[in-house]
Design a protein around this nucleic acid. Sequence first.
DNA 1: TTGTAAGCGTTATCAG
DNA 2: CTGATAACGCTTACAA
Lengths: 300, 300
Amino acid sequence: MGYSPDAQARSLVVGRTQTIGVVVTAITDPFIARVVQGIENTALDQGYSVILASSNSEPEREIAAVEMLRSKRVDGVIVTSSRVGALYQEHLDRLGVPVVLINSHRQQMGPYTFSVTVDNRHGAFLATKHLLGLGHRHIAYVTGPAGSSDDLERLGGYHQALAQAGVVPDPSSVVPGTGRLDGGERAFADLAKAAQRATAVFCYNDVTAIGFLRAARRVGLAVPRDCSVVGFDDIPFASYVEPPLTTVAQPMTDLGKQAVLMALDQVPRRDLRVAEASNTVLQGRLIVRESSAAPVQSPG
Amino acid sequence: MGYSPDAQARSLVVGRTQTIGVVVTAITDPFIARVVQGIENTALDQGYSVILASSNSEPEREIAAVEMLRSKRVDGVIVTSSRVGALYQEHLDRLGVPVVLINSHRQQMGPYTFSVTVDNRHGAFLATKHLLGLGHRHIAYVTGPAGSSDDLERLGGYHQALAQAGVVPDPSSVVPGTGRLDGGERAFADLAKAAQRATAVFCYNDVTAIGFLRAARRVGLAVPRDCSVVGFDDIPFASYVEPPLTTVAQPMTDLGKQAVLMALDQVPRRDLRVAEASNTVLQGRLIVRESSAAPVQSPG
DNA sequence: TTGTAAGCGTTATCAG
DNA sequence: CTGATAACGCTTACAA
């Protein structure tokens, strides 16, 4: 029939809107898009719908988004991959509803802080160990954005694997990138003129690795014969690139799913049980494709 | 201060929610993600927020999404790239709010039908003319999903350009694809064993073109030297692929922007002026990269 | 069991 | 111009 109940009038009285707010930096980021897909799917399963707000990494838009979500009386908020700044956090705390952070790191944990993150250290460890297992001893790491905690953790996993294998890292083997394509390209140039030539490169993320691949191809360097390359994230295009990229897959859909479940666990219901804070950490897994192989014997 | 007006109570009395609903097939589709970005940005400019609903192309989820949006009393609905089926349309009509379709084609135009589309025919014409201008005479077209109206229109533009140049198309020059990567790969195989070898290929979309590129590389065929390739869409990865892909860029952000403006134009305001129906058609533009070049002289 | 009234947080209207 | 009050569409608690 032609009748539809007014959800607003309803929630005005029951106190729940069956809506969760999602603030992202940019929905065009393939990584974020998959996280949002995970969020949307499990939200639907739970009878919830999703209000999307993009910040484009502009602080003013970020707080405007939070303010809008507050007005709309969402039952929970999920924030993905944002650098949660001081005043932003203040707005989040004001919110009065559960806030779950995905792959973000707050400066200080407030009383209402919940988060789900991927184990960067373990992922990097897996990637580096894979290269070591293939026989590589000169393995470089191309960093991400300067000061990113993701980057620091991945660097940590890289060092850990090296140490465990008894390999002392060459001081020039950590080269700066940007997390973008140009970072990988520049890193290739830097690495090419280094004294000790690396036989394998672990990159902060897939985009960096693809930039590296591109630069290598331009000068006729063959991957993986002349140099193995491993990325991080497993963005959709990682498998389409030539050669298909070995990488550490982030459980992007699960990241979103867990965030929704964690948020909904906090919204007062019959079985209300409000935790103080919690952090779910999910493990990535290594996906071996064709960009990594055993090193060729050096002539002589 | 710590006060935030309740947008629900407000909209209960003013009759507007300052919210628009967006139903997409999958937010992970890079094309759709950019359209949604355009929607979200201009919605924000207009003081609107966005409720996102993914259908995963499942009809039941599609109508569930529309029903949810109706309950939430959105002021307008934007549907992207969906095959609007018979019963789905019925739900849309029930909605009572403006519905704008992006790149979709309704079977029959209802009273409330507004749409914004890209000029597929013109885009395909541009692409084919580009190849003709380079000197190609044997140009193949790899189709998209069978029966897609986008595909039919692009095929029309292809034929139009050919006809205008006085080139009679070889009957085997239109080969079936799927719109996915495998379609391009299969099309390459089909084309390779054709009697008359094409020197250039225009693909239904970038993903198909990339599949084609991949298959070509596997057998050592050089692009563009041995065969030029042109895609359609200009997805983010089109420029990262090797060689960077010549393609027809869809104005994705504008698609979203126009859809919002068209929807908001219909919501009753001080200056209410309700059109019967309208269709904004946006032009794509050719982006020449490195996957297309003049054909080499055939030996002898 | 069925029905009626109160109230959710706003805006709008109408007296004062 | 300022302040009280009805109404928006629903749920729920209580009364018949």
